[in-house]
């Protein structure tokens, strides 16, 4: 499962997208994010399941290649 990682450095800063992790569970995704994005002592660090990001506009280009293409 893919998770998007969001963080802010200080309270009051904008929470920004800093990357993603792939993990088998929410709990593991949190630990992966903590260990991998440890360049800061984040005031707030969060992971969101990719499927829970509901797109409003800006459709992403599809990355799969279908058989026969």
């Amino acid at each position: 499962m893919k998770y998007e990682v969001f963080a802010r450095i200080n309270q009051g800063d904008d929470t920004t997208h800093i990357g993603n992790v792939t993990a088998q569970s929410d709990r593991l995704a949190k630990m992966y994010a903590y260990n991998t994005f440890d360049e800061e002592d984040w005031n707030y660090l969060t992971v969101v399941r990719e499927e829970n990001l509901l797109e409003v506009t800006g459709t992403q280009p599809k990355r799969e290649v279908a058989a026969g293409e």
């Binding site: 088998q24 569970s25 709990r27 593991l28 949190k30 630990m31 903590y34 260990n35």
Partner: peptide, 16 residues
């Protein structure tokens, strides 16, 4: 805290 939390998260996935 993070060692033990990671271990438990891993043990859960390995248990599956």
């Amino acid at each position: 805290y993070f060692h033990l939390e990671y271990h438990d998260a891993r043990l859960e996935t390995l248990a599956e």
